[in-house]
Write a protein that binds this DNA or RNA. Structure first.
Lengths: 211, 211, 211, 211
DNA sequence: TATGAATGAGTCTTCATTCAT
DNA sequence: CATGAATGAAGACTCATTCAT
């Protein structure tokens, strides 16, 4: 599959690295499978095969299946949160910051479709309590980042309709819709991502926020 | 060996009717389970028990599990399409018709969350080819309904930004985002459905379409 | 393995009987395996193989592994209890009844070593709560049968040492010891079962009960 | 290839001593676990964790799991045999020596319930050949200790019933029954251990041996 | 002497599906 | 039209054991 044949074969067993690497390798494989086959389809065996190790081996690095998938989410979401932190501290007007945040959100999601889906598209009905709790928390945490800046705008009396919470949720939802559809319906003849993102966000901000 | 043929057929279990009714009955039961437990949770056994027949019996009416769930989707989507048809023929301006369509779309999705999810949130990569094809077709068909009316608006030169396709996709995506988030994140403290729907759609239309 | 080749082969699947028989057949096979390999060694697969069916098939007749083993115990213990009931109602003196009961107990155990072991030799630490409860209840129920008749003897003032409970427990324990050792240590050069049973019981009764 | 010999042995983990001590340490840990969780519950991992070393390490001191557990039994049984040796050499009448031996046997078993169980309650059919052989030998060896003294009594013509072998086996069996029941049925409302032991042994000796 | 990493065989259980009647 | 009985493939997970260092 890769250039394994060129490396000096030291043993029948894999001896790739020292633990830390193997863990990361499993996470990458799990993410690929999860992306391709969904949560239920991402079985321990498939992941193990993809890595090229035994199923048992996964249990040396993760307590159980959930821990693997959850770890994927956590890692991805942290990036998103960090991006929002950076934007928050820029010396810009609130509308501009919201625009940047939403744009970053869309870009992030399109660049990390798998993790995005696990956190934002998975049914809350399915899966263990633990999983629910973690994905829910991640989602909410992320969502809350928009909250402050929208309230700033509201404080300036610039909301055309609705209260801050409603506007905040509507903005988030619209962006989520764009990315989730583009991810799950790739066969649709979508407009250029940047173009449609701009149209959607500009339209929304123009429609909801007064000068 | 088995004198069952001589006994007056008076099934202890069910004597509902012949065939057509049974099929519908299965669909209703399957929908209930599917709504309650999601796709993976809707096992053949559960459905059969809910109907009160043997698992084998389901296979007399449907080829396999997918066919059952897909049939549920098809039925649901037909309602949505029909609603759009009705709206299309109303003697109203195009913007008004778009507003009604989007509103109806959101209401429909919130009222049929599981069918909606199967069609619009499931990964297109997962599942059987048949399922993929069907859900994809249903989704696209539904999406196309918006297309005409947006082009009408564009023909009147009223689009503030973007070409008709982009606007059309943005509108759809925004509504999809609202419903899919409300469905998958019920624990979020959502604004009133009607209020947020109105804010989102009005904001979008105001932002994207000029008078 | 057996004369299966001579029977008219009707189908690749087994079609032995109508459910009731299969259940009994599984119980018999499970008992054989359990006897040979102990509780942990009696795996679902081994039992299924012994019966000649798939593992899955066992789950059509029993909820889980415990239910199988427990059913074996229950059935066996009922025989023992019934024997004691019969003896209780004989018009004999209490010492004679106790002697018969103990003798019957030993004979039963030697004739049903497997079930006996599951109920009386299995560690109370191992296994599910359900299993513990059931085997414990069976054991206690059985043990209690001796209780009444020993109290009768005590009421006649004929106990040489100890209170009724102590004597009762000592009698039971001694018989249990005999059978459990004969079962678990077959390689010991045991005296004739009837002879040693008689010597033990007569010795005990003589030693503990005055004329 | 391995310069470990040149390094100053100063294990970061444990520097308890060299080999002999570690072996003993493992045995103690294994016994704790074995006592708490039974044979099947005493996994290699648990034992290793209890000691604070890796699982692999156990294999440097013992061939396999059985060897560990067997060693525990052997050690325990040696104590019992030693006790019997001491009693044998006391200048007492044979009946008195038998009484002391049986009492010591019961006390020992109640004090070492899990070792006792492994040797005397485990099915001889289950488990590896090695284990069978060892536990069997231990059991028999222990059993034989009673033999001589009972023959002494018989030589004095004091057996009320049965031949020496039968009486010998009956005595042993009764004591085994008491301890094995008390061990496996702790929830029974047992009489005081000393009281019931005395009643059982005195009753038996009185019933089987004439003055 | 000890380890971290890995394995293969095995555990129970559940699922969609099919056969013979 | 419907069933009871059965199946094979797969699920997650655990165990004793063994490499290479």
């Amino acid at each position: 599959m890769n250039d394994i044949l060129n490396r000096p074969v030291k043993s029948a067993r894999k001896a790739k690295g020292d633990g830390h690497l193997r863990r990361a390798e499993i996470l990458r494989a799990a993410e690929r499978i999860f992306v391709a086959d969904g949560y239920e389809g991402a079985t321990i065996r498939k992941i193990a095969d993809e890595v090229g190790v035994s199923s048992t081996c996964l249990y040396m690095h993760f307590r159980d299946k959930d821990e693997i998938l959850l770890e994927i989410c956590r890692a991805a979401m942290e990036q998103l949160l960090e991006m929002h932190n950076v934007i928050s501290q820029r010396p810009l007007g609130p509308v501009e910051r919201v625009r940047m945040m939403l744009t970053a959100y869309v870009e992030f999601a399109l660049g990390n479709p798998n993790a995005y889906r696990l956190v934002f598209c998975a049914s809350p009905l399915a899966g263990s309590d633990q999983k629910q709790q973690v994905t829910h928390d991640l989602g909410v945490q992320c969502f809350e980042r928009f909250s402050g800046v929208v309230r700033e705008i509201a404080a300036e009396g610039r909301l055309r309709h609705g209260d801050p919470r409603t506007v905040h949720q509507a903005l988030w939802a619209a962006c989520h819709g764009l990315v989730s559809l583009m991810i799950t319906k790739p066969s649709v003849d979508w407009a250029e991502p940047e173009e449609i993102t701009r149209v959607l966000i500009d339209g929304l901000l123009f429609g909801l926020i007064a000068d």
